[in-house]
Design a protein around this nucleic acid. Structure first.
Length: 217
DNA sequence: CACCAGGAATGTA
DNA sequence: TACATTCATGGT
């Protein structure tokens, strides 16, 4: 008969999750400034729009390519969703090209810009929208799935919604959680293990990405 | 040359 | 529900 020790909180996945932010923070420091500027606080309205644009461009693509596409847009003075709507599709495609999937991403930038501007008028007005009403609107847009919607909610609109991405799943796997669980299931696991705090979610998720990249290099 | 990088939509069974 | 395919560029 095997001697069993008493289970502690850290024996459960949620316990291991709740202990991670401090640990990663001690390893890598403040993620703001390291991980582009998504964790920077506070953000201007233009910076929030930039996050919306980047959340589309970064789909299944490395950050260097996203940066190249963003530089193209910046040089063309396209920094807002309204600017996007006033730019010919072909021109947008030429700017988005370095980020890959450029025809799809151009279409997605146009559709998210159209939907948000038509419904809210200005980005400022979106800040008053209730979180899950906004989430459902984002998810109704072609080209915006769970991860992109939650990137926007967490980093642009500072809502306590935890982002599940490749790095989150790898970390979950390390903690003994099945990495193939459905998105919403995985999100619930992380959110229930943590206080409902968008600042914590931003920094923790950014640290997961930093940690994930570190391990590979 | 093969493989990968912070997805999402679509089609099939 | 689960799994395959498509979309495309640039770095290693």
């Amino acid at each position: 008969m095997v001697q069993k020790r008493k289970k502690t909180l850290s024996d459960f996945p949620s316990g291991r999750i709740s202990a991670l932010p401090k640990k990663l923070r001690s390893l890598y420091g403040d993620p703001a400034g390291q991980w582009l500027f998504w964790c920077k606080r506070p953000k201007t309205l233009v910076e929030k729009e930039r996050i919306i644009i980047e959340s589309i461009l970064t789909q299944r693509t490395n950050w260097k390519n996203v940066r190249a596409a963003m530089d193209n847009l910046q040089n063309a003075k396209i920094t807002t969703l309204t600017n996007i709507l006033h730019t010919p599709r072909e021109e947008l495609e030429s700017y988005c090209r370095p980020s890959g999937f450029f025809r799809q991403k151009t279409e997605r930038l146009l559709s998210i810009s159209r939907t948000l501007i038509e419904r809210y008028g200005k980005i400022k007005a979106i800040e008053k929208e209730e979180t899950f009403a906004l989430r459902n609107i984002l998810l109704s847009i072609k080209g915006v799935g769970f991860e992109t919607a939650d990137d926007i909610l967490l980093y642009a609109f500072e809502r306590p919604v935890f982002v599940i991405d490749e790095y989150t799943r790898r970390t979950a796997e390390d903690l003994g959680i099945n990495r193939n669980l459905p998105y919403e299931t995985m999100r619930n696991i992380f959110e229930e293990a943590l206080p409902r705090d968008w600042r914590l979610y931003q920094d923790f998720h950014a640290l997961l990405v930093i940690h994930g990249k570190e391990k590979k290099g």
